[in-house]
């Protein structure tokens, strides 16, 4: 319903010679301006919400530019897309056929086997000293080159301070484990009993 006649009558009542038909806009807008507005506004809302969240979480990080410092070769995105050849069926590979997975499983089984072996075959209770003795024995069996490699490996990765520097309080109090119940933790420890509930105590 148009109110235009009302506006026209009102102008007449005001003894105005102002013509109601002048109401056409002389301004122009870019073509298609209104078509993408809703999407643009939603994108802007998301951007601002993300920024506000970051401001609250880390003012330092929110002050940094999000510009990515990497570069791409000139015209990289302008290259025409080449028509792909006939599609080849994607091979489905079981994860157990992956070499690293097999090695990992083998290592875990071997470790568990040695541990159980030690535990069951020793008449004396398994203590830290017996484990250390076993390790020392293994090390003695190595030749000089192997010993050197082992020393390099240990020296490269460990400073001896790692455990002492770990602050796990946050992890339990308000960190990742905050929502894990006591019962779930107990079950987890029972499942890993081979490692954690052994009699390795001093």
């Amino acid at each position: 319903m148009s109110v235009r006649p009302t506006i026209e009558n009102e102008l007449q009542e005001l003894n105005s010679r102002l013509f109601a038909g002048l109401s056409q806009n002389p301004y122009t807008i870019p073509a298609g301006y209104f078509e993408g507005m809703a999407a643009q506004v939603l994108a802007e809302i998301r951007r601002r919400e993300t920024q506000e969240e970051l401001n609250a979480l880390s003012p330092t990080l929110s002050g940094l530019s999000r510009e990515i410092p990497y570069t791409t070769p000139a015209g990289y995105f302008d290259r025409s897309v080449q028509t792909p050849g006939p599609a080849e069926p994607t091979p489905v590979v079981s994860i157990f056929r992956r070499t690293w997975m097999r090695y990992a499983v083998a290592a875990a089984l071997l470790g568990a086997g040695v541990f159980i072996g030690l535990k069951n075959n020793n008449e004396t209770p398994l203590t830290a000293n017996t484990v250390l003795s076993a390790v020392e024995k293994e090390i003695d069996g190595l030749n000089d080159q192997e010993k050197e490699r082992l020393q390099d490996f240990v020296a490269a990765g460990m400073t001896g301070q790692e455990t002492a520097q770990l602050d796990l309080s946050g992890l339990y109090a308000d960190g990742l484990l905050a929502e894990v119940s006591e019962q779930e933790l107990t079950e987890f420890l029972e499942q890993t009993a081979l490692i954690t509930s052994s009699s390795i105590t001093d």
Binding site: F34, M37, A38, A39, V41, L42
Partner: peptide, 12 residues
Amino acid sequence: EAAFTRLVRQYQ
């Protein structure tokens, strides 16, 4: 978001 899109389109 769909409702907001309608609103924007209707009054923009």
